[in-house]
Design a binder for these strands. Structure first.
Lengths: 208, 208
DNA sequence: CACCTCGTGGCCACAAGCTGCCATGCTCGG
DNA sequence: CCGAGCATGGCAGCTTGTGGCCACGAGGTG
């Protein structure tokens, strides 16, 4: 394999580089590639060989109950899970010799770079470590979401139905101030600074 | 075929009901089913047999340049095209004996009802005619979009970037009043009454 | 029981957005 | 050339949203 190789789509990626997953340490950031790999029938990870698994979820993705559930299932199965507010690209660190990074969508498929150049792999590892240290452990994230989490679906429904904050607060049994506080937290978690952006992001994340 | 039949997905629909498209008059509402049919290799419409083709596009869809382009291409090829502000479901009227109506997504595929019960077909025809009369001919729609159309991409970008109206107006070379006038028109075209809804709809329509 | 922490809610100042009204100017047709 | 129609832009009044500040109360801990 060349020092860097670009493939298109997950099937091609795993056909060409699936064997690289046979490592004892795996770290990943963002959401979908790892999920695709775990649900892909070939090749499956050797459960005894993998000694350390780390996963960083995006904060915005964690607003989705199914992602949140998945994070907890992974944690229960021994993975180290953190949550980051940064909008990281899909990244997979396979041991210390290979890295897979997602690129752009083209022709309906995402491209992936499989990198084995030692300098690049090392640099990406260092960046991953920095992002990992800055991210919140899952339990800290959970604690900070105690007030927002149960209200998120209701708030998103109210916003998507076009209710004013006053009407939405009444509908959800909250004061106007608290409703607005929760909306601000939700917008921050989605990385949105305006209501339009929040609507766009919520739809993009599949939350509405 | 029974008086009403439900199928799942476009492939099954055309496998089961493709022969029904061999009619001399066809009317449809909304966007994707007709497009799917025209790009499906089997069966193709008999160009000499089809005497009248009518198509109603949703106003919100017409904000997308590719849909707008498609509407014009159809009009140039002899179809009667109108634009409606109503959020119609996918509907195909095949002559005066069959109707296909889209249902919900399930298991990643949309369900379709193929209806041949004469009373239902007649009722749906009457509703279609009413909606058709209420819709705007393509040229009337175009005239009303003269100011908004060229600005739509820029406005959507500005909104999605979280710019204030004042900053966006400056960026687009418009006065604040005119920018806000255009945003209001865009929101009306999308059927949105709040900025959050507009963001959600824009993302849903693939406009951002 | 007292004290501390923290979430809630009311109030307020300010910013951003919504829309009506009207003056102005441009374009087009008679 | 003139008048009508219509889009723009400024202004204003109002609504909605943003977030700080503070009082209060609940819960937990020593």
């Amino acid at each position: 394999m060349d020092l860097i190789e670009v493939v298109h789509g997950e099937r091609e990626l795993f056909a060409r580089a699936g064997h690289l997953f046979d490592v004892d340490e795996l770290a990943c950031a963002a959401n979908t590639l790892f999920t695709w790999w775990r649900t892909n029938p070939e090749p499956q990870p050797n459960p005894r060989r993998l000694k350390r698994l780390r996963k960083m979820f995006r904060l915005s993705a964690m607003l989705d109950p199914s992602w949140s559930q998945q994070a907890h299932v992974m944690a229960e199965h021994g993975a180290e899970v953190r949550v980051t507010a940064d909008e990281l690209n899909e990244t997979l660190l396979l041991g210390h010799r290979f890295v897979i990074m997602a690129g752009d969508m083209s022709r309906g498929e995402r491209s992936y770079s499989v990198i084995s150049a030692p300098e690049a792999v090392q640099g990406i590892h260092a960046l991953y470590e920095a992002a990992w240290r800055a991210a919140s452990p899952l339990e800290v994230h959970d604690a900070s979401m105690v007030e927002l989490r149960p209200l998120t679906p209701g708030i998103l429904t109210a916003l998507n139905d076009g209710l004013t904050d006053e009407a939405a607060a009444r509908a959800l049994g909250l004061s106007l101030r608290t409703y607005r506080r929760r909306v601000a937290e939700l917008m921050a978690a989605m990385g949105a600074t305006s209501r339009f952006q929040a609507g766009s992001r919520a739809r993009e994340l599949g939350l509405v």
